[in-house]
Simulated assay, not measured.
Amino acid sequence: MEKKLESAHRFLAQEIGRTPRVAMITGTGLNAVTEALEVDARIPYAAIPHFPVSTTDGHRGTLAVGTFAGKRLIALEGRFHLYEGYSAAEIALPIRVMRLLGVTHLFISSAAGGLNPRFNPGDLMLITDHINLTGKSPLTGPNLETLGPRFPDLTKAYAPDLQRLASAAALEERMELQKGVYAAVHGPHLETPSETRYLRLIGGDAVGMSTVMETIAAVHCGLKVLAIAVIANVNRPDLMEEISLDDVITRANQASPRLARLWGRIMNLTEEGPF
């Protein structure tokens, strides 16, 4: 794994030059979030040594470098999932490469199904914590001591200071920002009514198939994480409605301009900060 990381790191260091401090991941149907990026370079994942390749519709599958809201940014346009057949370690590889490049902050966007009955489709939810129900961890196997400790603490996996910044940004934008716990499942099948009821019972406010592997890997190697999910639909176990990937992509696309505005405001509120 270390040789793969170093190979990808060397390639990107040559292609990118000066590395931004912030990396952003966009999820299903959220490519529009990076349309405001003034792109200096865009590299297909397939061209990067040992990088996974996105196979899910709605994921562009490119790494872009440019300026967003006046700040330099690396954007991972599309992500990787356990249900695609990738291991947790493979999903973590791009995060670890970002750390080797000098990134210090990871911004995560994703689409999710709402579990909280107070939510509505199209809402934005600030992720305050997660429940990992995948049975997987990117830290399984030998620990990469050069990146982080064997047993990283996840008490504050989603950085509280960045959460406060996001709340302040939403207030300035006069934008409602929900808060909640993200329950991660393996997928790719969607949840049954009984599973939905269980997820809500154990404290989940939204459910999805991404984000958590990336967050665990990021915390392990010392990155500060801020994550916001677009609520594509709301699952009410007694009134379950069928939803397709096309529906998720459509609703995520509709929410993308608001999400991009919010990310831009967050970046603008850090004039004196690390970005």
Rank of each mutant, 00 (worst) to 15 (best):
G204V: 08
N268W: 00
L201R: 06
A13N: 08
E15T: 09
P138H: 02
A170I: 12
G180R: 01
I16T: 10
A157N: 08
Q178A: 15
S110I: 00
A32G: 15
R99S: 12
F68E: 07
G204K: 02
A8W: 01
L5K: 01
Q254M: 15
L37N: 05
L63I: 06
N116L: 13
D247C: 09
R79E: 07
E15H: 09
A157E: 07
D123W: 02
T146C: 08
V230L: 12
L115V: 11
E271F: 03
L259G: 13
L30I: 08
T196V: 15
E173K: 06
N235F: 08
L76W: 00
E6G: 05
R174A: 10
S167V: 15
F119C: 12
L139Q: 02
S167C: 14
L63Q: 03
P257A: 12
L199R: 01
P138D: 06
L165A: 09
T270C: 08
R21T: 15
K224M: 10
A112K: 01
T56L: 11
R236F: 06
D40H: 02
A218D: 00
K71T: 13
T67V: 15
T104A: 12
T34D: 12
L139H: 02
N132R: 08
A206L: 12
L12Y: 04
V65T: 05
T128H: 05
T250R: 12
T250P: 04
S167M: 15
A88R: 02
R18Y: 05
Y83N: 11
R265T: 15
P193G: 13
G203P: 08
G141S: 10
R164S: 10
L101P: 08
A229D: 09
R79A: 13
I228R: 00
L30N: 06
V65R: 07
I108R: 02
G141A: 14
A217K: 01
I108Y: 02
D247W: 00
N116H: 12
V230Q: 06
L226Y: 04
E241D: 13
F275E: 07
Q14S: 14
S194H: 09
P20G: 06
D238H: 07
G203S: 06
N116A: 15
L124P: 08
I243R: 09
P20N: 03
C221Y: 02
M98W: 03
K136M: 11
A170Q: 03
G85M: 03
Y198N: 09
M24T: 05
P274H: 01
E38I: 11
G78R: 02
R164E: 11
N132T: 13
E145I: 06
R197G: 14
L154R: 00
